[in-house]
């Protein structure tokens, strides 16, 4: 990692302009493979073993794990610590940064520290409001928003300087991601907002849960028309729903989650709702592989993490590829050598 040449200033194009990929996720994407990322939930604990146990569930089935940063405004182990622990074992991670809890001074320091600890990928988020979580009394910070966060980290990386203009002796060499939610209003603004994020430095995009293929297709068409498909890798979010009741609850209570009635009716009518939820997820991954511009999927299986390997396998999304796992240590990165 440290030997990588810094990217050319001013280029945010993840596909071709960079001399060297920064991590396995970027390598997989640039090689044109269908990438699988997943969400790893940080524990409510200070025990590193809890982190390793959670990661072991996914190994060999995912290209990278996103350690969430106080997701849903609930307090857990920090994303940077999770990623640092996991990168010690060789795992590829995506560190998430939410603007809700820290100001620009803290965030920039964290980014430098994360890169120093071996973290290759950072996802820039605005974050859920504090009202959604277990500490609604907390002060919402929102000093930056996801867009200015992207620009800030791009500045650290490419211009080698803080927001203040003060220079860095070495910038953080990170692959930058952002989120988008094509499933909530204003629908016609979403692709344009993505263009803005790409202009601010986003190289890969993970979306909110996709349960509505027509809306996603519409969004992807708009992205194509704006020329975004060549400038960033788009990984729609997917996930297994546990039951019709859980789906209704999510739709009602989790900000930004859109689940069409047809999906809920299908779950309602199933004998084994949990299995049906997995089937819907598998079918979605299969359908997404056929959508132009989709570079992979981001699986969010909250409290159903153990079902991820079976879902990935059944979807056929990996073809005959096996993502890196610690026991493969002897021949890492072998699959991407020809890329």
């Amino acid at each position: 990692m440290s030997s990588a040449t810094p990217p050319t200033p001013g280029t945010h194009d993840g596909s071709a302009a960079l001399p060297e990929a920064r991590g396995r996720l970027e390598q997989v994407l640039r090689a044109g493979n269908f990438a699988i990322t997943t969400e790893i939930a940080p524990p409510d604990s200070a025990n590193p073993q809890d982190v390793y146990d959670r990661a072991a569930v996914f190994q060999g089935f995912v290209d990278s794990m996103n350690a969430t940063d106080g997701s849903g405004a609930n307090c857990h182990m920090s994303s940077s610590a999770m990623c640092a622990l996991l990168s010690r074992r060789g795992y590829e991670t995506v560190m998430q940064i939410s603007c809700r809890d820290r100001n620009r001074i803290a965030i920039q320091g964290d980014v430098l520290g994360a890169s120093a600890l071996g973290i290759n990928n950072i996802l820039c988020l605005t974050g859920d409001g504090v009202q959604a979580g277990d500490h609604p009394q907390a002060k919402p910070v929102f000093d930056l928003d996801s867009m200015s966060l992207l620009e800030t980290i791009t500045g650290l990386r490419d211009k080698h300087q803080f927001l203040s203009g003060r220079p860095l002796s070495q910038g953080p060499n990170v692959f930058l991601g952002a989120a988008e939610n094509p499933f909530v209003p204003p629908f016609n603004l979403r692709a344009m907002r993505l263009a803005k994020k790409v202009a601010a430095g986003a190289q890969f995009i993970q979306t909110q849960y996709c349960f509505d293929l027509p809306r996603l297709r519409n969004f992807m068409h708009q992205c194509r028309d704006l020329g975004l498909l060549e400038k960033c890798f788009i990984l729609p979010g997917v996930g297994p729903l546990a039951s019709a009741r859980a789906a209704r609850w999510m739709r009602q209570n989790v900000p930004g989650v859109h689940i069409p009635d047809a999906i809920i009716e299908r779950l309602d009518g199933a004998h084994d709702q949990k299995a049906e939820g997995r089937n819907i997820c598998i079918e979605m991954i299969q359908a997404l592989q056929e959508v132009e511009g989709v570079s992979g999927v981001h699986i969010m299986a909250h409290r159903q993490e153990s079902s991820v390997p079976a879902i990935v396998q059944a979807s056929g999304a990996l073809s005959d590829r096996t993502p890196w796992a610690p026991e493969m240590e002897t021949e890492p990165l072998a699959s991407t050598a020809t890329a």
Binding site: T126, F142, S146, A179, V184, P185, G256
Partner: peptide, 21 residues
């Protein structure tokens, strides 16, 4: 905007177009 967004809507906009916060 309760999140002081200066660059467009967040991903938490409700289906009726209202604010999550």
């Amino acid at each position: 905007c309760p999140k002081s967004m200066r660059n467009g809507p967040c991903g938490g906009v409700m289906q009726n177009g209202h604010c999550e916060v």
